[in-house]
């Protein structure tokens, strides 16, 4: 996946704007994305392998459609071993945690508020409002080049 282009210009998000997790935001914020994902995996009794380069890019094959997503190994493990857990996305977690998990489950392929709403069973306007505020949660940012 090409890295989405991010600009500093004023930006008006819409229901068609796609969102993704910006790994650079995590670095700039001095936070460790991999540790966060490892904690999430531990919640589901899954331990990430220690002997692999988790940033290595691999191909994940969708078990239903055979569509391929080219993702960092760490996301491959989440998609393969953690996300299929029926409790991975549930109504008890916060909206932001839900969005974060939905993006992980999709291999961080960008999603619109409508797509996120369908996955989370939440209102798409609430999602747009939450994500289009000035504060960035868990590195979730819009792809601004698409408008």
């Amino acid at each position: 996946m090409d890295k989405p282009r991010v600009s500093a210009a004023p930006f008006q998000a819409t229901l068609n704007t796609r969102y993704y997790i910006d790994y650079e935001w995590w670095e700039r914020s001095n936070m460790d994305f991999n540790s966060q994902v490892a904690r999430l995996c531990a919640e589901f009794d899954y331990e990430l392998p220690q002997d692999r380069d988790l940033d290595e890019m691999v191909d994940w094959v969708d078990p239903d459609t055979a569509e391929v997503k080219h993702v960092p190994l760490i996301l491959y493990y989440v998609m393969q071993h953690v996300a299929p857990n029926p409790d991975f996305i549930n109504q008890r977690i916060s909206l932001i945690d839900g969005i974060f998990r939905a993006l992980l489950e999709a291999g961080n392929y960008p999603m619109t508020p409508k797509e996120l709403a369908d996955r989370l069973n939440r209102d798409h306007r609430t999602i747009l409002k939450t994500l289009s505020g000035s504060r960035i949660y868990q590195g979730i940012r819009p792809i601004q080049s698409e408008g």
């Binding site: 191909d59 094959v61 078990p63 239903d64 459609t65 055979a66 569509e67 391929v68 997503k69 080219h70």
Partner: peptide, 14 residues
């Protein structure tokens, strides 16, 4: 454009 698996040795429902 989307990517799909080809020449996949493992069984797949598709």
């Amino acid at each position: 454009t989307r990517e799909f698996a080809s020449e996949l040795a493992a069984a797949h429902p598709v």
